[in-house]
C-alpha cells in the first residue's frame, strides 16, 4: 500500500510540466526514502532525476518498495485538473495496475479522484557517479531560462565557459554570433538574484540548446538554478524543490569530431 499526501500539490504539477515533454514514459520508484524517478529522453542524450523525500510529505506511507510505470503526458493531464492550492494524495495498492490521484481543495469543499492505468516499462537505470565538478554556477533560474531562449534564436548549440572572469554563454548561427557573460554577483540584497561561481579549473563545454530550453521548463520550481560542469562529464542542471528534494537534468556534451 502506498499513500503519499502532499500539501503543496502544485509542486507535483510543476514537476510534471517540467519533464513531460522530455520523457514519455517512466517508472516512479517509491521507497522509505521518498518518491523518485530516473528517466532518459528517447535519444538517450538527456536524463531526468527527481527526488521528493518522504519527510517533505504530510503523510508518507510506503509499505514496500514500489515501481509504478506511468505515461508522463497522461499523468500531467490528470495533475492539471488539480487546483494550484489543492492538496494532492497519490495512492496505489501493491501489485495493482492503477494509481489514484486525489485532489482536495484547501477548505475541503471539493474532493476529486482520478485513477490512471499503470504500464510496464523496461527502464534503463544509469549509475551516476558522485563527481567533483570543475565549475559550479548558481544563478537566478529566470536568467538562465532567458539566456537559453535568447541564444536559441541565433544558434542550435551553446558553449558554456567558466573562467575566473565569469561564466560565458556563446552561440553561433547563420545570422551571426552571440556572447553573454555573467559575473559573480553576491552583493545583492536578495539571495535569489545572486550569481555565484565556484571554479576549480576553467572549463568549456558545448551543449544542444534544444535540451537546455526543455530543462528551463522547471524554472517555476526554484528561484535559483545550479549548473555543474566538468570537462569529461555531462552537465547537471539542478532545480531544488522547496525543502523536499530536487529535479536534476543531465545532458551529454557535444564533442568535436
Amino acid at each position: 500500500m502506498l499513500e503519499l499526501r502532499l500539501v503543496q500539490g502544485s509542486l507535483l504539477k510543476k514537476v510534471m510540466e517540467s519533464i513531460k515533454d522530455l520523457v514519455n514514459d517512466a517508472n516512479f520508484d517509491c521507497s522509505a526514502t521518498g518518491f523518485s524517478l530516473q528517466a532518459m529522453d528517447s535519444s538517450h542524450v538527456a536524463l531526468v532525476s527527481l527526488l521528493l523525500r518522504s519527510e517533505g510529505f504530510e503523510h508518507y506511507r510506503c509499505d514496500r518498495n514500489l515501481s509504478m510505470g506511468m505515461n508522463l503526458g497522461n499523468m500531467a493531464k490528470m495533475l492539471k485538473c488539480a487546483g494550484n492550492d489543492d492538496i494532492v494524495t497519490v495512492k496505489a495498492d501493491d501489485g495493482g495496475d492503477c494509481v489514484t490521484f486525489m485532489f482536495e481543495s484547501p477548505n475541503q469543499d471539493k474532493i476529486a479522484d482520478f485513477e490512471m492505468k499503470l504500464m510496464d516499462i523496461d527502464s534503463e537505470h544509469l549509475g551516476i557517479p558522485e563527481a567533483e565538478y570543475e565549475a559550479i554556477v548558481r544563478m537566478p533560474s529566470a536568467e538562465f531560462a532567458r539566456i537559453c531562449k535568447d541564444l536559441s534564436t541565433i544558434g542550435d548549440t551553446v558553449v558554456i565557459s567558466v573562467t575566473k572572469e565569469g561564466v560565458k554563454f556563446s552561440t553561433r548561427g547563420d545570422i551571426g554570433t552571440a556572447n553573454i557573460v555573467l559575473r559573480q554577483n553576491t552583493s545583492v540584497d536578495k539571495p535569489e538574484e545572486a550569481t555565484i561561481i565556484e571554479m576549480e579549473t576553467p572549463v568549456s563545454l558545448t551543449f544542444a540548446l534544444r535540451y537546455m530550453n526543455s530543462f528551463t521548463k522547471a524554472t517555476p520550481l526554484a528561484s535559483q538554478v545550479t549548473v555543474s560542469l566538468s570537462s569529461e562529464l555531462p552537465v547537471v542542471v539542478e532545480y531544488k524543490i522547496a525543502e523536499m528534494g530536487y529535479l536534476r537534468f543531465y545532458l551529454a556534451p557535444k564533442i568535436e569530431e
Binding site: L126, E232, P234, Y250, K254, I255, E256
Partner: peptide, 14 residues
C-alpha cells in the same frame, strides 16, 4: 562540427 554523444558514454547501466 561538434558531435552529440549519448549519456551511456559517461554513465554505465546498472
Amino acid at each position: 562540427k561538434a558531435m552529440q554523444v549519448a549519456l551511456i558514454v559517461f554513465f554505465a547501466h546498472i
